[in-house]
């Protein structure tokens, strides 16, 4: 079995006024260490796909296996632990906690995992070193540039050494230089640590880069019900 397995996944969003079918009987498998780029037009279900992998959304029917365990069978606490320890999320909007300084932002997943204070401090220092923001650890996100904020978000995503990185348009709010830098960070992680990456984008640069790296491309339109 592959590392991530979607088996007959169906999902429909239901609001008061409408029903939006996203997936019907979707089967998809992703191997460990794969770099998967999901692309395609807006509103087709790319973010939804990532949210299924993170356990944030549950499908109406079907099963999602990650590393052999059925996400839908996990209890709420187990899903939270799974999300905390095995998933690293990077968003287009960075989604930092603006009341926290850089250090505390990076520490959030570590705090949630129940790590000891001393270990947290050490790990945070290590991560800030890695992204080159050690000297700004007491600053608040609003004083950082977009690129710096996204690097903080990256450090936060990898804090717990996840197996899977879910990146939802990570370069969407970055200029090309910063975008390239971030992609390189993610790529390095993918190759050095064999971390599985699902990266949503319509950014041509990523498509090129990942394409050249021989990674897999998924056109969302080929798997979604949204037309």
């Amino acid at each position: 079995m592959s590392f991530i397995n979607f088996e007959n996944i169906s999902l429909t969003y239901r609001t008061k006024t409408q029903t939006i079918p996203i997936f019907d009987d979707l089967n998809l498998s992703i191997d460990k260490g794969e770099f998967v780029t999901v692309y395609g037009p807006s509103g087709k279900g790319k973010s939804t796909l990532l949210n299924l992998v993170s356990g944030f959304l549950r499908p109406d029917s079907g099963k999602i296996f990650v590393d052999g365990s059925d996400l839908c069978a996990l209890s709420e606490n187990e899903v939270c632990a799974y999300r905390n320890k095995r998933i690293g999320y990077i968003f287009q909007q960075f989604n930092l906690i603006y009341q926290f300084n850089v250090r505390d932002n990076v520490a959030v997943p570590l705090l949630l995992s129940g790590m000891k204070k001393y270990d947290i401090e050490r790990r945070v220092d290590e991560l800030l070193d890695m992204i080159g923001l050690s000297n700004r650890k007491n600053e608040y996100p609003r004083t950082l540039s977009g690129g710096e904020q996204q690097r903080v978000a990256f450090a936060r995503a990898v804090a717990n050494d996840p197996d899977i990185i879910l990146a939802d348009e990570p370069t969407g709010n970055l200029d090309s230089a910063n975008g390239r830098k971030l992609i390189k960070l993610i790529k390095d992680l993918n190759t050095d640590k064999n971390i599985t990456v699902l990266c949503v984008t319509h950014d041509a640069r990523i498509l090129e880069q990942s394409g050249s790296g021989g990674s897999r491309m998924i056109d969302i339109e080929t798997i979604t019900m949204q037309s």
Binding site: F56, E76, C80, Y82, R83, N95, I97, V108, P109, L112
Partner: peptide, 14 residues
Amino acid sequence: EHDMTVFSMLGMRR
């Protein structure tokens, strides 16, 4: 709402 969603995404329990 924003912060709580972020916390949930990072594994905070409901």
